[in-house]
Design a binder for these strands. Structure first.
Lengths: 228, 228
DNA sequence: CGGGATCCGTAAAGATACTG
DNA sequence: CAGTATCTTTACGGATCCCG
């Protein structure tokens, strides 16, 4: 009779770990913290997590009082953090800074997921700083990525950003080619974009001023400031 | 091909969670943080963890650069936190405060482990404040605990504290009887000792001044200050 | 006795398919 | 879109044993 759940300890660390330190749970919380609310929105940020397990974890978090499941009239159910859940934010952040500082060297090939990188970039693009009143199309080529996830297009129009994996057909305003590793290193703050360019791992093609704007509006990962 | 380890994400939260959010790992870290160094010392704080799994986790932590295994000449092998491990302390602490604040209501019967309680009390007894130059024996009865772990003796002599589960045969200086639940509530700061005494859940027998000294030298759990 | 290793049954996670 | 259902693989719990 394996008593799988529970550590049998009244220690608050144990009680917190029972819910927090389950597989995938910190990543589910991270997604909720950055603002994902719909089931499939959460899935996008957790591509290797099975939907069955995501569903199960969300129920566990709901039962633990960390997540609320507001089920709208139709299928517009949304997941939100409760106050208890919000208070986990500093812990997730601390874990991220610790990971950036100490686990960076433990990245494996499988960790360099181009889709997650592009999704992060899309989310953190400060579109206000790009030319207004016109469509801007940025093509991004990630060398070293699988063919199916190598070419991406960011279409910025009327303050909206669209991320495409297929050529949207518009004229490309700026073309960015980069080693996948180098692009992730830039995004995570391990390497400056200047350094990547000097090393020939990252190049722009197109308008110089647009390239400059793009560089300014590309915010880095929230954990980029961690010491390397 | 189940890629069981690794979330396939470069996000620092994911890389940290890969090692931190494994079953038992936060509790192993807690033990190391409070100062346990020997294998069996760790085991005492993790009674429900199998020794095989503890051994495995310690190796994983060592491989991850979080724990050092200093193997002395003989069998005096010791486990220590590295700098990376020390930097997890604030995260463990934050998790403990969060757990004390939000998970207190989720304690189950199995969580009230008398041995862990007594071990905590033993460790946090400020013996300086007890009478010097004489032996002080405090018998503790925990009502509601299993017979085998109901009666305990704290023997304080020459600044050393000994915790016994068998009557050491010395004259008892002070006798404390308490509901196990109430004693845990006091230890975790959920309830003051005064309140527990008023509720009749905790009583002293013996010298009034010694009872008073004992109450002063009993420090509470590090997480006791968390709001309830 | 400290510090494990080994083996086996169960429970949790992954893969894939399917549904309202 | 938002999940279930089912089957397989892996990890965990428990007991036992080993070795200096």
């Amino acid at each position: 009779m394996a008593a799988r759940k529970g550590y049998g300890q009244f220690c608050p660390v144990a009680k917190a770990a029972e819910i927090f330190a389950e597989r995938w749970t910190p990543l589910v919380l991270r997604e909720l913290i950055v603002g994902s609310q719909r089931f499939n929105e959460l899935r996008r940020g957790l591509p290797l997590m099975s939907s069955a397990l995501l569903s199960q974890r969300l129920k566990e978090l709901e039962y633990a009082g960390i997540v609320e499941h507001r089920s709208g009239a139709r299928k517009n159910a949304e997941y939100h953090l409760t106050e208890a859940g919000q208070e986990l934010r500093p812990i997730i952040e601390a874990l991220g800074f610790w990971g950036a500082r100490w686990m960076r060297s433990r990245l494996t090939n499988e960790d360099y997921d181009p889709s997650l990188l592009m999704w992060d970039i899309r989310r953190n693009l400060d579109v206000q700083r790009l030319p207004e009143g016109q469509r801007t199309v940025i093509e991004i080529n990630l060398h070293g990525a699988e063919p199916a996830v190598r070419r991406w297009w960011l279409v910025v129009d009327a303050g909206e950003v669209d991320l495409c994996m297929k050529d949207p057909g518009y004229e490309v305003s700026l073309r960015l080619s980069a080693e996948l590793r180098a692009m992730v290193d830039v995004w995570t703050g391990r390497q400056s974009m200047d350094a990547a360019m000097r090393a020939g791992k990252l190049t722009f093609e197109g308008s110089r001023t647009l390239a400059s704007s793009f560089r300014k509006c590309l915010k880095l990962s929230p954990f980029a400031r961690a010491a390397s």
